[in-house]
């Protein structure tokens, strides 16, 4: 599979058949000092992220602020529309309303809780998905890994370890030999 081409490859992909094999290989690649590399697997392999040295994501912190925004939004919405007589200007004039119903207090704490809760959950959930995709750089409709037909088995039953050529440690022949030494089933050259 692997032969020299005049143009520099985008990277090399080593193919493995078991989660154990790719985990062992990932540990070696991480200790060899590579930075622009990744593992592609059909399902999240338990412990592979730690073997690769992936740092914990900041997603939960982003989600916390997303949820907080939801709570504030709900509090503002309810107080503005039911408790206060203030005017806002948002494209069209919007007028708050003091909604008095059967002698209930204008700011009815307990009655406002369900909507506070629901909007907190709603905004947290939307933030979770949005931020996860954003951090992952998705949606992305083209990627060199998706181009090679051999790598289509990533979503089926094969495990691929990819080292990109932009890695400072990347040296065509040396990296190729290094990947071969990890005992893969095959090594595939990736075009950009």
């Amino acid at each position: 599979m692997s032969q020299q081409t005049p143009e520099r490859a985008w990277g090399y992909a080593a193919e493995f058949t078991t989660p154990a094999a790719i985990t062992a290989a990932a540990k070696q690649v991480a200790s060899a000092g590579y930075r622009w590399w990744d593992c592609h697997t059909p399902f999240p392999v338990h412990g592979l992220d730690t073997a690769m040295g992936v740092k914990p994501t900041i997603l939960p912190i982003i989600v916390f602020f997303g949820g907080l925004t939801g709570t504030m939004l709900a509090a503002f919405l309810q107080v503005f529309t039911n408790s206060l007589q203030v005017d806002l200007w948002a494209i069209v004039p919007v007028i708050g309303y003091q909604f008095e119903v059967s002698g209930k207090p204008l700011i009815s704490g307990p009655a406002f809780i369900p909507v506070l809760f629901e909007l907190t959950v709603l905004l947290s959930a939307l933030t979770t998905v949005g931020a996860m995709l954003l951090l992952n750089g998705l949606p992305r409709l083209y990627h060199p890994v998706l181009k090679s037909p051999k790598l289509a088995r990533i979503t089926d039953d094969r495990f691929f370890l990819v080292i990109e050529s932009r890695d400072p440690e990347f040296a065509d022949k040396k990296t190729l030999a290094f990947l071969e030494s990890l005992d893969p089933v095959s090594v595939v050259e990736l075009e950009s």
């Binding site: 990932a26 990744d38 593992c39 592609h40 697997t41 059909p42 399902f43 999240p44 392999v45 592979l48 992220d49 690769m52 992936v54 994501t57 997603l59 996860m132 995709l133 951090l135 992952n136 998705l138 949606p139 992305r140 409709l141 083209y142 990627h143 890994v145 998706l146 990533i154 979503t155």
Partner: peptide, 14 residues
Amino acid sequence: LGWRGSMRHWHRYE
């Protein structure tokens, strides 16, 4: 969405 089973993606996904 261009999902390619990247372990770095799986980490955030999980």
